[in-house]
Design a protein around this nucleic acid. Sequence first.
DNA 1: GTCTATAGAGTGATAGAC
DNA 2: GTCTATCACTCTATAGAC
Lengths: 185, 185
Amino acid sequence: MARQIAERSDVVPLLTEIFRTYGYEGASLARISAGTGLGKGSLYHFFPGGKEEMAAAVLAHIDLWFQQHVYTPLRTTPDARLGIAHMFRATKRYFLSGQKVCLIGVFALGNERDRFAVAVKSYFVDWAAALRDALLRDGHDAAAAAALSEDIVGGIQGALVLARAMNRPKLFAGTLARLEARLLE
Amino acid sequence: MARQIAERSDVVPLLTEIFRTYGYEGASLARISAGTGLGKGSLYHFFPGGKEEMAAAVLAHIDLWFQQHVYTPLRTTPDARLGIAHMFRATKRYFLSGQKVCLIGVFALGNERDRFAVAVKSYFVDWAAALRDALLRDGHDAAAAAALSEDIVGGIQGALVLARAMNRPKLFAGTLARLEARLLE
DNA sequence: GTCTATAGAGTGATAGAC
DNA sequence: GTCTATCACTCTATAGAC
């Protein structure tokens, strides 16, 4: 019964993939145990709150990633257009060009939305707000920037739904390219 | 034990609401029994295949509704623009202006996509194809019609995700209005 | 001895099938 | 209603680091 390397932070990426693959209800502790290689004892040691705390840690991890790789570049890149281009590249990479779903989007459509209401809401609110700010700096007026930011953040989510439903991952990159091109109109 | 009103076709609308509210995994037989007022025996009488057959019946029912109220009008309304306008109205009504999610979209993002692959895929393929045909008749070239139809069908799905995640149902109608306005550009 | 990480048997509740 | 399987979770036991 040797002490293993595991820390909470080592487990979160594994949990992320499990929840993305099976959803919240579908991610049983048996599957989580198999997927992480940890027994229930270890899992409950790291996450005393059980599955709900595991999912909360995953949501926090996702939020951090988007803060660092999307929202902050959108707000701080001097050339707003470069920040937006960076967002599209990071988004395409994160969702593996449409092969991975957005866990927050999945939660938003299910009952998990209520359980994780703050995290689900702030993910989209923060993304749209950061993009709106970049669009304002790029010269759009307030109304256009607000509408365009919602269209783009929503368009990304919709493209993930369609790409997965139709089993056409390339649809995702195509949609993103058109969304980005609309900014040059 | 008197014979009740129920027929299979009476139960399907109730099942639809239950699956839309709780998702596939979250819709337990206990909840289905409570929501339909039918005992487990009756449910298995109507749906020998169990929960999977219930969900399949719901998907078929949704498909029929969209065939009648969306795809056929898109293809057969002489003035293509009127057919498209009819689609936006029907869509807004069906999703109660963003207060209801799209069950097929939920299934597409979850493991239900594989179990109900044909129904999930054809819902979106049929919708996009019918819209593309209407756009062609409205004078768009082939490439533009294909891209625009995907953008609109995906944009609707994304708007449902955002409206629910942000708890801003009105976002749905706003997005639909902008999607429709793009056709006049 | 104390603390942390581990494994897994065992709990009651509830699932879907019939 | 009855069935078995599985659910999230608890708890005991144990290992090694200090």
